[in-house]
C-alpha cells in the first residue's frame, strides 16, 4: 500500500527523535529509516536568527505534491516532512524529513529527492537577522540546488 505523507508547516520546534520513534513504532516492516534535519547556522557568529516567510496554503500543498511524487517513485512505508516558519535561531531545526522503507536505498533516495525539490519549489523565503541587531538581506537562491533537483529529471519523468 502506498504511504500517505505526513506534512506539517508550523512555527514550533520539532523533535526528530520523537517523530522517528512514532514512525518506527507504527510498523515492524520498516528496515530503514533515514532522517534529515536542516539546521539554522550561525554563519561564524554573524547571524542572530533566520526569519522564514512562507506562502500559507501553498507551502503545505507544494510539500504534499513533492511527497506524493516521492511515494509514487519509491516503496515507502512512511514519509514525514515538517517545515518551520517564523524566527529560527542558530542551532534550531528548520526542516525535518523522515523516510522509512523496507530497505535503505529507497529511504535514502526519497529523503534526498524530497529535500532537493523542497529547496527549489516549496514557497519559503529566508531572511537574515544579524548578531549586531540589524536586519540583513533575503538569502539568495543557490544554483547548486537547481542542479541537484535536475538530477531527478530524466528517464523516470514522463
Amino acid at each position: 500500500m502506498r504511504a500517505t505523507p505526513d506534512i506539517r508547516v508550523q512555527p514550533e520546534p520539532f523533535d526528530a527523535a520523537r517523530e522517528c520513534a512514532a514512525i518506527s513504532a507504527a510498523s515492524n516492516g520498516i528496515g530503514a529509516l533515514v532522517t534529515f534535519t536542516g539546521l539554522c547556522r550561525n554563519e561564524g557568529g554573524r547571524l542572530a536568527a533566520l526569519e522564514l516567510q512562507h506562502y500559507a496554503g501553498m507551502a503545505e500543498a507544494q510539500m504534499r505534491r513533492i511527497a506524493d511524487e516521492a511515494c509514487d517513485r519509491w516503496p515507502l512505508d512512511a514519509l514525514a516532512v515538517i517545515h518551520r516558519h517564523g524566527l529560527i535561531r542558530p542551532g534550531e531545526g528548520i526542516v525535518l524529513v523522515i523516510a522509512a522503507a523496507a530497505h535503505r536505498r529507497a529511504a535514502f533516495e526519497a529523503a534526498d529527492f524530497m529535500m532537493d525539490y523542497l529547496k527549489t519549489s516549496a514557497p519559503f523565503w529566508k531572511r537574515e537577522h544579524l548578531a549586531d541587531g540589524t536586519l540583513g538581506g533575503w538569502v539568495a537562491a543557490n544554483e547548486a540546488d537547481d542542479d541537484a533537483t535536475a538530477r531527478w529529471q530524466g528517464a523516470a519523468d514522463r
Binding site: 526542516v95 529547496k119 527549489t120 540546488d145
Partner: peptide, 10 residues
C-alpha cells in the same frame, strides 16, 4: 496570483 523571488526554504 502570487509573485515572488526564487525560493530558499529547507
Amino acid at each position: 496570483i502570487a509573485l515572488f523571488p526564487p525560493m530558499t526554504g529547507g
